[in-house]
Simulated assay, not measured.
Amino acid sequence: MTRYTGRRERARRYQLHERPDGSLVEVDVHIPPHAQRVVLFDNGMGAPQEYWDWVCGALPDDMGYVRFSRPGYGLSTPDTRYGLEPHFELLQELRDTYIAGLPVVLAGHSLGGYFVAAYASLHPDAVEGVTQVVMIDATEVVSLRHSRRTDVDRWSHQRMLMEQVFAATGLSVFRPAMNTNQQYRPDINRSYTAFLSDSRTWAKAYREYRDAMTYPELSGLDCPLTVVTAENNVGDNTLHAGIQARLAVISERARHHFVAGSDHESILAVRPHAEEVAELIAGEPPAGPLGSSWQPSTKGRRSAAERVEELA
């Protein structure tokens, strides 16, 4: 019942973009008539496009957005092609269809962060019209590749296999793998649960996880770059900060921002954290390099608790 009502609700809420080959992509497009710029969002692995909800709600009035579910997720038709080029084609198609003529910010979380940076770096002429790329606690593929056949890799493989079983049997409805704190609005929480209850979601996530280990390291990006990092990562925070810092050096116009108190999921799922991310997306892009004296720090920034208290 959860899967059925979830698909029906998705079909009611989101539109379907028809591609030249007849396949469909679930999209949510909001571009006001007075919009001066647009942000194109790319999701993390195994995550629905509605998890950008708090970020989208915090964007300024002159900024539209386009978000979508990659093939195989949500209502999007599964694609037998894998790798970066098919995804680059889709990003370019969405830009040409919905954002043509407007400046665009490319923003992605987790694996989506790598996707948007790789698109701007590797796809011909993709950087034209891009005001900045925002990588939000993004996947660093070299570290991911080095984790292969380690305990981390084995646990990731086992977890996604277990989630497929939980989804197929319906148990995931009672114990969602993500959004466990139910921080979104009730309708988004229900949609998120229904998305995770589809075993196809986890089959697609596993394929993306394995495919990501073959992706090339990014070495250059000819546009401003903002790297946003969750301060409280699962595991070694110092190691995570160092890995994220490596992402920031691919552009000569970059900044590295830590969201205090956030983790990999709450950086979007907790409203104050998401609003901080939205400020970075909508703000002025960085104009210069990090510099040799740069050190990661959260000193002087309000904590998540302080921002929650302020909102209340």
Rank of each mutant, 00 (worst) to 15 (best):
D62R: 07
P86H: 01
D96W: 03
A118N: 09
V141Q: 02
S76I: 10
Y82H: 14
D62G: 04
Y51K: 08
L59F: 05
L91E: 00
E140W: 02
A58T: 09
F88S: 01
L91Q: 00
G101Q: 12
Q49N: 13
L122Q: 11
P124D: 06
P48S: 11
I136M: 07
S110M: 11
Q49A: 12
S143I: 04
E128M: 03
Y98D: 07
T80Y: 08
W54F: 14
G46L: 13
V130R: 02
V130D: 01
G57S: 09
S69E: 12
D153W: 15
F88E: 05
T80H: 13
S76G: 07
V134W: 00
G112E: 08
P60N: 08
A138N: 13
M45P: 07
V141H: 09
V134F: 05
W52F: 15
Y119G: 02
V116S: 02
A58K: 10
P48K: 14
H123E: 01
G83Q: 10
T80E: 15
A138F: 11
F88R: 03
W52Y: 14
P86E: 06
E89C: 04
R67Y: 09
L59E: 00
M45Y: 09
P71E: 10
Y114T: 12
D79Q: 11
Y119P: 01
L144Q: 14
E85C: 03
A58C: 08
I99T: 12
G108A: 11
G64L: 04
Y98S: 11
S76D: 13
D62S: 12
S147E: 11
D53C: 01
V104F: 03
F88Q: 02
D153F: 07
T139Y: 09
T80V: 11
D62E: 15
P48C: 13
A100K: 14
A126P: 00
L122V: 04
L106N: 00
G112F: 08
G113P: 11
A117K: 01
P71V: 09
G112K: 11
E128H: 04
H87N: 11
R148F: 04
L84Y: 07
R67Q: 12
F68H: 15
T150M: 00
H146M: 07
S147D: 09
V55D: 01
T97D: 10
G83R: 08
M135H: 09
V104H: 07
V104T: 15
A100V: 10
P86K: 01
G83C: 08
P124R: 00
V116G: 00
A126F: 03
A117V: 06
S121V: 10
L102Q: 13
F115Q: 15
D125C: 01
T131E: 15
L94H: 04
R148V: 04
F88W: 02
T77D: 08
A100T: 12
C56N: 10
V133I: 13
G64N: 14
S76A: 11
D53E: 11
Q92R: 06
I99E: 01
H87P: 01
E50Y: 02
Y65C: 06
G74Q: 13
R81F: 03
L75C: 10
H123G: 00
I99H: 06
T150S: 09
C56I: 06
D153K: 07
R145E: 00
S110W: 09
L59R: 03
W52L: 05
T77H: 02
L144K: 13
L91P: 02
S110A: 15
P86T: 10
P86V: 06
C56F: 06
E93W: 02
R81P: 02
S147R: 08
S110K: 12
G74E: 14
G44C: 12
